[in-house]
Simulated scan of single mutants.
Amino acid sequence: MTNGFMDAHTYYVRGGVFANVQTGNVIFFAIDMSERKVAAALAHVWPILAFMVGVAVAAHIKSGRTERWVSHPLRWAMAVQVVALVVIGFVPVTVAHQYVTVPIAFLAALQMGLFRNIGDLAYLPVATTGNLMRFVESAFDGLAERSAAARHACGVYGTLIVGFTGGALIGAFASRAWSAHAIWLAAGLLAVTLVLFIVDERYVR
């Protein structure tokens, strides 16, 4: 939900740039370059670079190296996202958009790098295309092969798609109503997720 929310938010409020879905930024970059709008094209480059750095940081965290200095690095990564989004909500829309879209793209990459599985099912938290493909494939297997596991997967992917779409819808309405401050809703959603993450870890133990 937060990823769908943030893409709608940054597109509507922060200069027509996608903070999460870098495919969109690549396409807009190409269109702007074809029209010789270099400055507009570069606005889509910085989030892409920030996303790449975020993926590298997530890979470093997943390698276990950070646990030498920081306990529970996943919790800290989520907490940093919450605080960053709260701070971003105070940044006026008159400020250059890259000061907002770049850190959001970094945080989105961090989230994608650290959270890509629900049980044994792989998914993408920052986009819908891959999840939509897996939804249809698992639905087909559930019907044609009468597979209970495939039906379960279909339900999971369907929930992810609805969540992402719902987040984008809420983000669009909230951004129109509250402009830059709307991102505080996304921060709240992530804060609730962090609490549930901690509770779930304790329950498993």
Rank of each mutant, 00 (worst) to 15 (best):
L42M: 08
H97V: 10
V17L: 06
H152K: 14
A58T: 07
V83I: 07
D7L: 02
T94E: 08
R116W: 14
D141Q: 09
L121T: 11
A79M: 05
G54P: 06
G130F: 08
A58Q: 09
D7Y: 02
Q111N: 15
S147V: 11
A105W: 11
A122H: 11
H60C: 01
D32V: 06
F135P: 07
A8H: 02
A122W: 12
V38N: 10
T66W: 13
H72Y: 08
L49S: 00
P47K: 07
V70D: 03
E35S: 13
F115Y: 15
A56K: 10
L114N: 13
V80T: 04
M112G: 11
F135R: 04
I104Y: 13
L85H: 05
T94K: 10
A79Y: 01
F115E: 12
S71I: 02
A127M: 14
I104S: 12
Y123T: 11
Y99V: 10
V38H: 09
A41Q: 08
V26C: 11
K37C: 03
R36P: 00
L42N: 02
R75Q: 03
V57T: 10
L121G: 03
G64S: 04
A43F: 03
I61G: 05
A40T: 04
L42K: 06
L110S: 15
G119H: 13
I61L: 10
F90G: 00
A79R: 02
Y123C: 09
A108L: 14
L74M: 09
V57F: 14
D7G: 05
H9S: 00
P73H: 03
F140P: 00
Q81S: 04
F106H: 09
P92I: 00
T129A: 09
D7N: 07
S63C: 06
H44S: 07
E137F: 07
I31N: 04
V38A: 11
M78K: 03
F115R: 14
E145T: 08
N20P: 09
T94R: 10
P92D: 00
A105V: 13
G24V: 06
A58S: 13
P92K: 00
V83N: 01
R151G: 08
G130E: 05
S138K: 05
S138D: 07
S138E: 04
P47F: 04
F106V: 13
A77I: 00
Q81C: 03
V126W: 00
G142P: 11
A108E: 12
L124M: 05
A144R: 15
